[in-house]
């Protein structure tokens, strides 16, 4: 017997008098709850991320987002920027000063490893938890949101949903192409492994900045 068959056979060795399995309850999802208006969602998103040291700014347009991105890069002393392949990211980077080195999503790995900042969008942002939801089929995000010290995310306002359940309800991975990676990002990388003292940026970004753009 193969290992597969052995394991499945072991699992089928139920006692003859075993009670029938308890039923699977229907999905319990917060997506079905009434959604608060955008202003409340933004306030919740901003408040919960503030607790994690992540700032959220609401900006009117791409030009403002580009200006704020430039300023944030300067504040963090970052001169190289790794980007995802999202259209909104492309629109923002097109308006950045030329002295910032641009690294595309498919730049050589070694270059991406030394990038000082990363710029992505997100497919969904979750107000309740302060979470960015990134889907690889829609945006090549895996490296630019992970390797640099600073991660800036430009998120369309229409993508801000109320709860984690709302995001799950929209993800539909069974309809997605194979090989899809979904990443949930909530604040910067953190650890408390040394005497429970919080340290940010132990492996991933030390800082996360979010710009919510009206669309």
């Amino acid at each position: 017997m193969s290992a597969r068959e052995t394991i499945l056979a072991r699992l089928r060795q139920r006692a003859p008098d075993a009670p029938p399995p308890p039923p699977l309850p229907p999905v319990r999802s917060t997506a079905l709850l009434e959604q608060p208006p955008f202003a409340s969602r933004l306030a919740a998103f901003t408040a919960i991320l503030a607790k994690l040291g992540t700032t959220v700014e609401h900006v009117a347009d791409v030009a403002t987002a580009a200006r704020r991105t430039t300023e944030l890069l300067a504040e963090h002393g970052a001169r190289s920027l790794a980007s995802s392949d999202h259209a909104l990211v492309a629109a923002v980077t097109a308006q950045l000063p030329t002295d910032i080195e641009r690294l595309a999503h498919d730049a050589p790995r070694d270059d991406l490893l030394r990038a000082e900042a990363g710029l992505s969008s997100a497919q969904w942002a979750v107000a309740e938890t302060g979470t960015l939801v990134l889907v690889s089929a829609d945006e090549r995000h895996r490296l630019c949101t992970l390797l640099p010290d600073l991660h800036i995310a430009v998120v369309p306002a229409s993508r801000l949903v109320a709860t984690l359940g709302c995001a799950f309800a929209r993800l539909q991975p069974d309809a997605a192409p194979a090989g899809q990676t979904i990443t949930f990002v909530t604040g910067p990388s953190r650890t408390a492994d040394i005497e429970l003292t919080l340290v940010v940026g132990v492996h991933g970004p030390k800082a996360l900045r979010v710009l919510v753009i009206d669309d």
Partner: peptide, 9 residues
């Protein structure tokens, strides 16, 4: 929520 969840398919 922890900082990261990776959902790999």
């Amino acid at each position: 929520l922890t900082s990261y969840q990776s959902l790999l398919t």
